[in-house]
Design a binder for these strands. Structure first.
Lengths: 361, 361
DNA sequence: TTGTATGCGTTATCAG
DNA sequence: CTGATAACGCATACAA
């Protein structure tokens, strides 16, 4: 049966003209074969005209372009994926965009990847565990690489990813192996730096509001902070757990400063927590920042520089993060294994109003 | 030549066993043929096992699954796209994620689309004009639909889209035709509502800080505001142009309130502008909000509910927006033309502190 | 139930 | 420079 169609092809150029297109309703796009037929050339020439790889005479080129225009032809990239085993698709996995920092990084990535000729497949996973549900989908779309902006990436999740043999770049994760490269900011150093700053401003008692316990980034910032406090002979900080959100910072600060003894310097694992904490101090507890309490955050989200907030914080070197990631992805495309060392990009202190007071004065 | 390979297939199951896989370095994934060979069944059976559409005997099913496991087989979706002319890919076009409202909507979309079995291709375009560069790419990836969160969509851009015969859902655009459906909030009514509220609070002179002139959403909000002010006999509002960003609101407010005559009620086209304006009033001009000036915004971004901001604003019915969009996309997939009427979802007033004062008291 | 053959829309190879 | 043809990996109609 099907052989019949085939058999008819040899002389088909001039066969049933009405059979040209409105055949099946499924077909939405003209194919190179359709174009070829209309232009009166071979399909190869159409392909060559659009890929530009090979030479085509000006006359055929013109005929092809005309026919293509008439049929609204858009070459499909799908078959190419099959042939080359490269989709030019990069998946970005995010767990939530409520933190403006992630939005900003995501945007940066989109721009850069597009510029490099990649398309971005955006994937949302509510939590680390759900990763297993999404991964097969990504593999099925043959993404070239996966960038995980997930705050946390469990060893189990990492294992799932590793099985796919797809290069993975993960932010702020402890995992790092043949298929997973970790990219983080200088979290530990930032913690140290803030401790130094607080001490220089005359602070005597210290507080820290963390992200989720599972967040390596939060843990590292805290470690640096605690270590430096210990080194300088200051007492250990009071710790409260937040969740990286405004509300978490607000509630944690209420708890930490509601009692009798209160810290006079507070480091928060991110800006959202810090802003929540500041609001709790000012609006609910009647404390002044920085006159009574020094506060610092991390991320340098847009709100941190608002006049009413003016928060001391750290900027990630977003450009470097993206650069590194991009180069990892690109080199991985040549089949090379990933760099085996975690990548660390700088975090720069931005001093603003919330630490501008010398507590001894 | 190639025919030889083909000819060899019949008895190939037991042929050169080393030829099994590490053939070409390009190939990263096992194919259904590889699995079939290892399992000792036909490729069809592998396909059937994974698609689940047809019946497969328990014994073969088991053999197939085992082989697949051993080879880390992940069925590719790419060929299916070719067969069905459906990619299950939906493109979301964004112009910038600096506005938390967009991030939130984007996240909502991702979640819903994924739940509906679609993947999201995220595309960034710096401006309306650049849309033309990106569209062909999207067509080449055979996306099923395009959701444009671009604040503006020019008629030219719309025309480009229409040629592709890809369903487009655009937010807050004036365009609406066979291929482009517009989805917006009740911008006009919101403008009226705010005017009413200001008047009820005893305001006498009014101000408005707009988004970019090209933004239809901003224009509609202003129109409703102005119309109601006119109806009630109040003077026309002082207008300043912002750009939907904090800095724009800050600068615009400085200009509008820096002179001798100043409005005592200010409506801003979005929350970011409003927050910028408030900061300018409080931190730079020494004015009190709401005691001296009432302020309202639009979007209900997270920061609007921060204790230090406490901004009166409007929430979009994000869930409805996504619902509508999703149903449009899904129905369009059956080849039906798009709904010809623009979709309007409700905007609900959220009264907060920045309008809590009665100016006459 | 299972196997065979064919097509989807490209690119690459190989003859002309 | 041009045309035929073989893949790529899967789904499906058809035959067995």
């Amino acid at each position: 049966m099907t052989a019949e169609k085939k058999a008819a092809t040899p002389g088909a150029e001039d066969a049933s003209p009405d059979k040209d297109w409105p055949r099946d309703s499924l077909k939405k796009y003209a194919s190179s074969i359709d174009v070829a037929r209309v232009a009166g050339v071979s399909q190869s020439q159409v392909s060559r005209t659009f890929s530009g790889s090979s030479k085509v005479s000006e006359s055929t080129r013109k005929k092809v372009l005309e026919a293509a225009e008439r049929l609204d032809y858009r070459p499909s990239l799908i078959p190419r994926i099959m042939l080359t085993h490269k989709s030019n698709l990069v998946a970005i996995v995010v767990g939530g965009l409520y933190n403006p920092f992630y939005s900003a990084v995501l945007e940066e990535f989109m721009i850069r990847f597009q510029a490099a000729g990649h398309q971005v497949l955006l994937v949302h996973v509510p939590n680390d565990h759900a990763l297993d549900d999404v991964i097969p989908k990504l593999a099925s779309y043959r993404v070239d690489a996966i960038v995980s902006a997930l705050a946390i990436l469990s060893p189990a999740g990492a294992a799932t990813l590793a099985k796919l043999k797809i290069p993975v770049i993960a932010f702020n994760t402890a995992v790092n192996n043949r298929w997973v490269t970790s990219v983080s900011s200088e979290n530990f150093q930032a913690g140290q730096t803030i401790a130094d700053l607080f001490i220089a401003r005359g602070a005597r008692s210290f507080g820290f509001i963390s992200g989720p316990w599972t967040s390596p980034a939060s843990a590292r910032r805290r470690e640096g902070y605690e270590e430096r406090l210990r080194e300088t002979g200051a007492g250990p900080p009071t710790i409260a757990r937040g969740d990286y959100r405004y509300e978490g910072g607000f509630a944690a600060a209420l708890g930490m400063f509601g009692g009798s003894s209160r810290p006079d310097a507070l480091f928060c694992a991110n800006d959202l927590l810090a802003i929540g904490a500041i609001d709790a101090l000012r609006e609910r507890l009647g404390l002044r920042v920085p006159d009574d309490v020094l506060v610092a955050g991390f991320d340098d989200i847009p709100a941190a520089s608002w006049a009413s907030v003016d928060l001391t914080t750290f900027t990630h070197d977003a450009a470097a993060m993206v650069d590194e990631t991009l180069s990892i992805v690109l080199s991985a495309e040549n089949g090379k294994p990933l760099a085996t060392k975690p990548v660390v990009v700088s975090a720069r202190l931005i001093e603003r109003g919330t630490t501008s007071k010398d507590l001894r004065s």
